[in-house]
Write a protein that binds this DNA or RNA. Structure first.
Lengths: 342, 342
DNA sequence: CTGAAAGCGCTTACAG
DNA sequence: CTGAAAGCGCTTACAG
């Protein structure tokens, strides 16, 4: 492959200065038609495309954002990433992907890349409670937007699901089907989504009034394994339970495995609503009712918020709450009389 | 935020030349302990980190690779991306993510970024038959590795699943359960995975000998909708079918919807094996037997192949075939006698 | 061994 | 309106 053409080559071939070529290509100049022609010809003949690295270095911005997420194989974050990437592409931004697996060093590494101008800003999603290091690394960092989960004490813009309201609605739906003994497999303590959903769950129980019990609330990591463990405990210690609200698809999937092992049938023996709805829950039998996160909206809004910050625009709402939608399917049914799970 | 420190600031503070700082930081020089101390102190005091943009421009490489995939919300590509990103991080490479939705312009855009040095190389996955434009854009492009699907006529290194052998094994498994009337929902014509799996499927039918029929082979896009359409046709036109091999999880999911609608029970009425195994198929009832792609291996091998190419190392095998694994579960059972789907 | 200087490929304030 | 020159922040061949 021949050496790649530079702006200098174009200027030589078109008999104009480098300055003129640069200005013309960036649209900051009006030129006689004839000059334009010469430049266009040269660009075409040399197959010239600007070097984005040089441009970034010179301009001080890279037209690239960093997308920092805990996982990508997880469909939740994969969908979030899809929305972010699509919006970024529309806006002319590239996306540097960083999968942290909740490793704080990697998280901090990417925050640093804002200062070093490698990225113009970072969209950040973290899945573990902060021990203070994140908060520390965030000092004076501009152009940083959180999505999905919060960092305690951080005064940064962010986009989150309307977790509490969503959980309230989901639990209400369970209550309205006639359930009185309801359990929750909740996410990890100190995580915004878990805390808020727990509150929404309790709101609904309280609203339902006397006779309605939050039988048990398990704090779990958002994993299939944690869902299994909690479900085993639930069956053993709380057989009076007739409905469960699970805080994520993973927790639901783990619980489902346990129910299968013990012959507990969803719908018939126990009602279920889960959060997320990123797995093909509509194709399970029965189809699973789920509180869906509007990932397309969250990704889009978060990216636009970030771009506004990068552009230095005043940001009216620093915290955007995106509504969740309850997808009513077939896993919530009236409880059987005197039902017991064992 | 104060202006970010540059190498110049460090050199001033440490009373050495910029050259020395650069060399020391890059490990290409041995220095007296005392000088080292001064530089380290300056770096720490100024919170200096090198500007990667400037470094890349100067060195002519960016330590970044482009990952070009058709989709990211699709769990198949999400898992591939997870493996690629993890390996890249280990090797010290950043990942610029490009989701093309099979848009050729976006594909070509990213190929161009190799020439412009924004990325050192590209890992490329495309999901549509090439009309020649891709092949054209690939001329003289170095540091390009294909993964999962091929581009017809392109003489570039690549990593693929052992599709034919896998399909042979999967279909053999169906035959061994006693099936004689077997259909296939295949992927799009001209796509490597589809062509190869079709061949493997036919290999097995032929091997099974007289009395064994490939009842029908449907060429489908790899989508749920295409799976639905094909399954409707299958039920209508080929009720003698007792087993189906589907070429992707999406096709399977589409077919499943149709089976549900028509009351056809997997396992009892019809046996099924699908490809990919990226959906939670083990949790379906019955658990679905699937030909699993080893995405972690594919991503890792592809990235290492790319890095070798970037480093200019001779690459012994330009085409790497990664074995598939048949996950035997519960969706293949002996056919019922005189079974008819309608 | 050390450092001044050129160069990577752009953009843009400044002068003509 | 146009262009020579400085600058973005590094690396490295070259000279001392």
């Amino acid at each position: 492959m021949a050496r790649k053409a530079t702006i200098r080559d174009v200027s030589l071939a078109a008999h104009v200065s480098v300055t003129t070529v640069s200005r013309y290509l960036n649209g900051s100049i009006r030129l006689p038609a004839e000059t334009i022609q010469r430049i266009d010809d040269a660009v075409k003949a040399l197959r010239y495309t600007p070097n984005p690295l040089a441009r970034s270095l010179s301009r001080g911005k890279s037209e690239t954002i960093g997308l920092v997420i805990p996982e990508i194989a997880n469909p939740f974050f994969a969908r979030l990433a899809a929305s972010v990437e699509a919006t970024a592409a529309e806006r002319g931004y590239g996306v540097l992907l960083c999968v942290t697996l909740n490793n704080v060093d990697r998280e901090i590494d990417y925050i640093r890349r804002i200062e070093s101008k490698q990225v113009d800003g970072v969209l950040f999603s973290t899945n573990h409670p902060d021990d203070g290091r994140l908060l520390d690394a965030l000092k004076d960092v501009p152009c940083f937007v959180l999505v999905d989960e919060d960092i305690a004490g951080a005064d940064v813009p962010g986009v989150f699901a309307e977790n509490r309201g969503g959980a309230l609605e989901a639990t209400r739906h369970i209550v309205e089907a006639g359930h009185r003994k309801i359990a929750m497999l909740s996410g990890p303590k100190k995580l915004l989504s878990a805390e808020e959903r727990r509150l929404g769950f309790l709101d609904a129980i309280q609203e339902a009034g006397p006779g309605h019990d939050a039988v048990a609330i398990f704090d779990c990591a958002y994993t299939v394994e944690a869902g299994e463990a909690a479900a085993e405990n639930l069956l053993r210690d709380h057989p009076e339970t007739t409905a469960v609200f699970t805080g994520s698809d993973e927790l639901f999937l783990g619980m489902l495995k346990v129910f299968r092992r013990h012959g507990v049938r969803i719908g018939d023996d126990i009602s279920v609503v889960t959060c997320d709805d990123v797995e093909p829950l509509a194709l399970f039998e029965p189809a699973i009712t789920a509180l869906r996160q509007d990932l397309p909206q969250m990704g889009r809004q978060a990216l636009d918020l970030l771009i506004s910050t990068i552009a230095g625009k005043p940001v009216p709402e620093r915290h955007i709450l995106v509504p969740m939608e309850l997808m009513k399917r077939d896993s919530v049914r009236p409880p059987r009389r005197r039902a017991r799970l064992r």
